[in-house]
Amino acid sequence: MVIILSLFLNDHVPTIIFLPDTTKYNEEELIALLKGGDESAFAYLYDNYSAALYGIIYRIINNNQVAEDVLQEAFVKIWNNFSSYNASKGRLFTWMVNIARNLSIDTTRGKSYKQQMKIQSNENAVTNASNHINENDRFDSLGLRQQLSALKEDQKQIIDLAYFEGFTQNEISQKLGIPLGTVKTRMRTAILELKKILQP
């Protein structure tokens, strides 16, 4: 990431303009840089993961403005709490998903969110949501989206509920009205199928 300009505003908060950079970090390098508080590594993190996290946040929040606020909170938390990330427990993205998902779920339980959603439901909720379906072309260019169509709808549904929305197996069982055992086997086969599609 190349920092082209750093301008100072009245309150001495630097405004830094990042231009797209061709630098690619592997996960280890990125983690090392972020642990050292490297700001350009943070911008790289944002460029590469903000859309994936925003997709998850939006799925839970279902409101542009609130979702953007939650994304902001999530990245601030990721930056400030980076020292608590432990690579031995899983990948960086898994950790970030957990943060974004928990913040989103907490937000939906808040009073102001519920009020806002009431207002929104009276307006144009449908167009709002349909604006945002699969806008990320970066991965589409790999043809992954087409390959994923091989995933059955009920398999997709169970991964989405669990991974994107943080539902437990019990909650999924209740929500979909299917036995817990079925949820367990369907979840495992869904992920095996996903692996087969994405990592042949």
Partner: peptide, 10 residues
Amino acid sequence: EYAQVNAIEP
């Protein structure tokens, strides 16, 4: 990768 395919640009 599944999350990336389902990503939405903020």
